[in-house]
Design a protein around this nucleic acid. Structure first.
Length: 726
DNA sequence: ATTTGGTGTCATAAG
DNA sequence: GTCTTATGACACCAA
């Protein structure tokens, strides 16, 4: 019975995987036996991300920053923060986070990319932004899903949620492996993709005057070279390339002023031909006699793109032309149906495309970027350059290895992924530098962090006036905030924040406790007033000139010090010197009123000196309190800034990983299309072309040219050669 | 006995 | 020149 259950469970899981292949999401957890872990744990293994830790409750507030360091609840808060800081210290490690469920799946696909994301995207997010475990989990997932399409900038289908994509991801890997093993080919051939492709093609080329598959077949039939799939495949390749070029908008790149997509693919209707020419180069040029740097390669490519149509010049050594006419709009852009058709076409050759809504979600997002954004985001030249250089590398390897079945295979297999890895590294470093500089800038520029901003004379002077005005009527307002005279930005912010202000106010009252020695606060309390005025005999004499109280020293030292602290030494001195007005007035009166007060009474020199000292010390005491509070606020602001930057960093790392993955998928599709086209090309004798000696190249007018590899090196330097089309 | 944080005070610079 | 404010440094105290 148990084995039967197990069998059924495994079958359910496998069935779910199959359903996910078809884009159907099945929640199998509800069907699983209760003793089994959830399905995602069965598939992915148990993750700490799903372990609901109650560390959120360690913070009473949203993130704990509302708690002032001087809060009476500070022990509790710092305990929480210590735990959290430990978790943050695990930045590079696996930190429990609800985001893990997204990235652990990708780890299998490309560990190089996702590992960095996993480490970095976790630490600052997760616990800090989670007010409670339950709601945080839900919120995070919501934000994750809600943010996903936005970050992709895509009109992603609603059913292709983030989770769906992640579920399909490993399946896509299996698909790719099947393709590599040749299994996928027969598979989708057996599915009758020919017919589908033809349908798609016909739908895209409903006008008989345009290039149709049949016409291509006819032309190909003349030479006896091509089968109908070639045209479709070639069109798919062209569409895909146009998509890529459209997507990345290489034309706008100052570094690599690539031609616009329509310049590449804008082909007037004409007979499809596998012409022979000798003069064209291609970004796919695999064989490079001499290694050129990317700039030179691009110049060559540009010269090719700018070539005018060539005059026909048939020769035995000329490379073959394969004219491709992608369904372009009059303006040269691909309309939505074209995209759809391209996606479907692509999906026929690369079933993984069905798994990834690449034509819908990533591409529009990427196309929204301008070239500088792309460069800044990816930190590399462009896809064409990548393909170019990578194909070069792969070809150079091919000549030695002899395996030329996959001219672009090196792109994904070695060179491109290496470059992506390097790019990732460079991005990582650049990002860190950028973030460091950004942090520096913000620390320098942020007024909330600048001490100078707090040196605004407004608040102290305002406090001075307010307290002085209050002091004229009563002494009640001295120890109020206005008397302290410091109001920081963070204070205002936290006061505005309902969640965070709660912890701050008690602290502020505690902070105000620092002014408990102030006479006004002292006088506000009747019993303390009584102590302050009537128990001076407990005062321990501190200054020799002050007359000793006859009862001094009689009380316990502890009691005297307590009273001393409560009353204030200056207060005691003032009483000892029989100063006829309160210390509060001495300290807080404006200088004019203070001088007027001094002139009102006939004071001795010692009394005058004491009064001035009291005033100086009192003001300095408040200044010191303000200064310390300002320091604390600065520390708090810095801490919040660090937290914000950590969140920003993880978000950008996550976005970078998504972009890299979508780029890799696009490259994979291009490579698949290339292989598809190349493998179906036939020479006059009906034999397939050897990848060792021939390679497909891409021209500016949308043609794909089959060129001998040995001629490429020669023609690389002859970009002025004119295009020839039949 | 030592450490640590809070507080007051002084000295000094700057506005 | 005076007053006020800010701040580093130091000492004291209590936990």
């Amino acid at each position: 019975m148990l084995s039967l259950k197990k069998y059924l469970t495994e079958g359910l899981i496998q069935f779910t995987i199959l359903l996910s292949l078809m884009g159907v999401r099945v929640d199998l957890d509800s069907y699983l036996p209760s003793h089994l872990p959830p399905l995602h744990e069965i598939i992915l293994g148990p993750t700490s991300a799903y372990t609901q830790t109650q560390f959120h409750s360690l913070r009473g507030t949203t993130d704990g920053y509302g708690v002032h360091p001087k809060s009476v609840d500070l022990d509790h808060f710092f305990t929480s923060r210590r735990l959290l800081s430990r978790m943050r210290a695990l930045d590079r490690l696996q930190v429990p986070s609800t985001e893990l469920d997204t990235w652990l799946v990708h780890r299998e696909a490309d560990s190089s990319v996702s590992s960095a994301q996993t480490g970095s995207s976790l630490s600052p997010e997760g616990p800090q932004d989670l007010p409670s475990s339950d709601s945080s989990l839900r919120d995070n997932r919501e934000t994750e899903q809600g943010r996903g399409p936005d970050e992709l900038g895509a009109s992603a289908p609603s059913e292709s949620s983030e989770l769906n994509k992640e579920e399909i991801d490993p399946i896509d890997i299996l698909w790719l492996q099947d393709i590599d093993l040749g299994a996928g080919r027969e598979d989708f051939e057996s599915r009758g993709h020919h017919k589908d492709n033809e349908d798609i093609w016909e739908s895209l080329h409903d006008d008989p005057g345009r290039e149709s598959l049949q016409s291509r077949v006819q032309v190909d039939g003349e030479t006896g070279e091509n089968v109908p799939q070639e045209g479709q495949t070639a069109m798919s390749l062209a569409d895909c390339l146009s998509l890529l070029d459209d997507t990345f908008q290489f034309a706008g790149s100052s570094e690599f002023p690539a031609p616009e997509s329509q310049s590449i693919l804008d082909t007037e209707p004409g007979p499809v031909a596998l012409d022979q020419t000798d003069g064209l180069l291609s970004p796919f040029l695999p064989d490079m006699a001499s290694p050129l740097d990317l700039e030179e390669q691009w110049q060559d490519l540009m010269s090719i793109m700018d070539m005018q149509p060539m005059d026909t010049n048939s020769s035995a050594d000329d490379p073959l032309y394969l004219s491709l006419d992608p369904p372009l709009q009059p303006n040269g852009t691909l309309d939505a149906p074209s995209l759809q058709g391209c996606a479907q076409n692509l999906s026929l050759f690369t079933p993984s495309l069905e798994a990834f809504p690449i034509s819908e979600s990533p591409l529009p997002q990427l196309s929204s970027h301008n070239s500088s954004d792309i460069n800044s985001t990816f930190g590399f030249t462009n896809l064409t350059g990548l393909l170019f250089s990578s194909s070069l590398n792969s070809t150079s390897n091919e000549t030695s290895s002899g395996s030329l079945q996959d001219p672009l295979g090196g792109i994904l297999g070695d060179a491109l992924f290496d470059e992506i890895s390097l790019m990732d590294l460079a991005l990582e470093e650049g990002f860190s530098q950028m973030q460091t500089s950004q942090l520096q800038e913000e620390l320098d520029s942020d007024s909330g962090l600048s001490l100078d901003s707090h040196r605004s004379p407004a608040s102290p002077s305002g406090s001075e006036t307010s307290s002085s005005s209050c002091s004229s009527s009563s002494s009640s307002s001295f120890s109020e905030e206005g008397a302290v005279g410091y109001s920081s930005d963070s204070e205002l912010v936290e006061a505005d924040d309902v969640e965070e202000a709660g912890g701050y106010q008690p602290e502020y009252s505690k902070f105000c406790r620092m002014s408990s020695q102030d006479p006004s606060r002292f006088n506000r309390l009747p019993f303390l007033e009584h102590v302050g005025h009537n128990h001076t005999y407990n005062m321990v004499p501190e200054e020799p000139e002050e007359p000793e109280s006859p009862l001094a020293g009689r009380g316990s030292r502890r009691q005297s010090t307590f009273i001393d602290r409560q009353a204030g030494r200056d207060e005691q001195r003032a009483r000892a010197m029989k100063i006829p007005f309160s210390n509060e007035k001495i300290i807080n009166l404006p200088v004019e009123e203070f001088n007027e007060l001094l002139t009102k009474y006939q004071l001795s020199e010692a009394q005058l000196c004491l009064v001035r000292d009291i005033r100086r010390r009192g003001k300095n005491k408040m200044a010191a309190q303000n200064c310390r509070k300002r320091k604390l606020d600065t520390i708090l602001n810095l801490e919040q800034e660090v937290k914000r930057l950590n969140r920003e960093r993880s978000s950008q790392l996550r976005e970078k990983g998504e972009n890299l993955r979508s780029l890799q998928r696009m490259k994979q599709e291009v490579e698949n299309l290339y292989q598809e086209v190349f493998s179906q090309l036939r020479d006059q004798e009906g034999r397939p072309y050897s990848a060792q000696h021939y390679a497909l190249h891409y021209t500016s007018n949308g043609n794909v040219v089959l060129m001998p590899r040995n001629a490429e090196g020669q023609q690389q330097r002859r970009p002025e050669r004119k295009d020839r089309r039949k």
